[in-house]
Simulated scan of single mutants.
Amino acid sequence: MKKAENSSSRGILKADAGKSMYTLSRYESGAELKPFIEHYWSIRYDLDKETSYKQTVLSYPNIHLAFEQDTEGRRALLYGVPKTPFVRELRGSGRVLGIKFRAGGFYPFWGQDISLLYGATISASEIFGPSAHSWLDDILDADDDAAMARQADILLENWLPDRDAQAELAAHIVEEIMNNSSIIKVEELSMHSGLSIRQLQRLFRKYVGVTPKWVIKRFRLQEAAERLEREDERIWPDLAVELGYFDQAHFIKDFKAVIGQSPAAYRKGKKI
């Protein structure tokens, strides 16, 4: 299974600290699944009895299907876009094979508004039926991370849906928001996309699960966290303006509301 080119840690808060606690790998899907799946990801960890590690992720606007094994057993879960930062505490040993669907990419498998999954975590069997239980063992019993991803690819190919042009349009617009930091308002996104604000709202509710404003703010806050971790303090006074905020007070309020700390506390490395 070919490793994915994307090795970014964007959205993984304090990612450098986690590198000694777990390994993260990403793999490409097969060609037929590429319109629907961004990549497979795998995590493995093996901590001693006295050690635990809490990882916080400022999630992307994507649906994830995860096959998990830890000290509590095995499970297959579907994760909607979370309402708050995703937090997972690692203890003992475990492994996960995750499937990151493209923004809009899960809709063809489900056929319902993705907004219904906002903040939800449900059993994979509710979507894929009893077969999800056998998938759990088929994937987690594979020899290594690449083999787990290959097995997931084989299983999902049997559920291959028809492509959906609107879902792919939603994916394209989300990617544009992520890569174009000059888009800081829904009105600007409307101009870039050629869609009215109302059309964007309907498209995102059905295919992405969150609003265009949510996506813009999320990517800008991911960028803020990444820059606060990696760049010189001298950028701090200008950061709010560069991310499209009217003033620092509004930026600090948003950052603290989502991440749970002020930007200054986050920069100093205090625990979340």
Rank of each mutant, 00 (worst) to 15 (best):
Q55A: 09
V96I: 05
T121Y: 00
S131V: 15
Y27R: 09
A146V: 12
L203C: 13
P161A: 10
L239P: 11
M1A: 11
R26K: 12
F36T: 14
G94W: 01
R88E: 10
I99M: 04
W41D: 08
K253E: 13
R267I: 15
E50D: 14
E188S: 10
E229T: 13
T121V: 15
I173F: 00
D143T: 15
I259L: 14
D232Q: 06
K206L: 10
L78F: 02
Q55E: 09
K271E: 14
L189V: 09
G30I: 09
K256Y: 02
D113M: 05
S42D: 05
A103E: 02
P161R: 05
G92S: 07
H250M: 10
E175S: 07
S262W: 00
K100H: 07
K34G: 09
S196I: 04
E229S: 11
V87F: 05
L78D: 03
F219P: 04
V87R: 08
I43F: 06
I127E: 02
R267H: 09
I99Q: 01
F101H: 01
D238I: 12
G269Q: 13
L58T: 05
E187T: 13
I216K: 03
F128H: 04
K271I: 14
S59V: 12
K34Q: 15
G244M: 04
P35Q: 08
L97E: 06
L156R: 03
E72K: 06
V210E: 01
G73A: 06
I37R: 01
R198K: 11
S131F: 05
V174C: 02
S125Y: 01
L47M: 07
D145W: 01
K3W: 05
Y118N: 06
A103S: 12
Y22A: 02
R26F: 08
E229D: 14
R218M: 15
R44P: 01
E231A: 11
R202V: 14
A31F: 09
P108I: 08
N6T: 05
H250P: 01
T71G: 05
I177Q: 02
S196R: 03
R163I: 13
L77A: 03
L155Q: 10
L117G: 13
D232S: 12
P85S: 12
E157N: 12
R198T: 15
Y22H: 03
F255A: 14
E50P: 00
R205C: 06
T84I: 12
K14C: 02
T84D: 07
E176W: 01
G209Y: 03
F106E: 04
G244D: 08
W214Q: 08
H39E: 14
K3A: 13
K185H: 10
E5H: 01
K185Y: 05
D16W: 09
F246L: 15
S7I: 14
Q151I: 12
Q201M: 09
D247Q: 08
F67R: 08
E233R: 04
E72L: 11
F255V: 15
S59T: 14
G104E: 07
L200Q: 01
A146I: 10
L169F: 00
A167G: 12
E126F: 01
A171E: 10
T211R: 07
P61E: 10
D144S: 13
A147F: 00
I43T: 11
E5L: 14
E5N: 08
K54S: 09
E226V: 11
R74S: 11
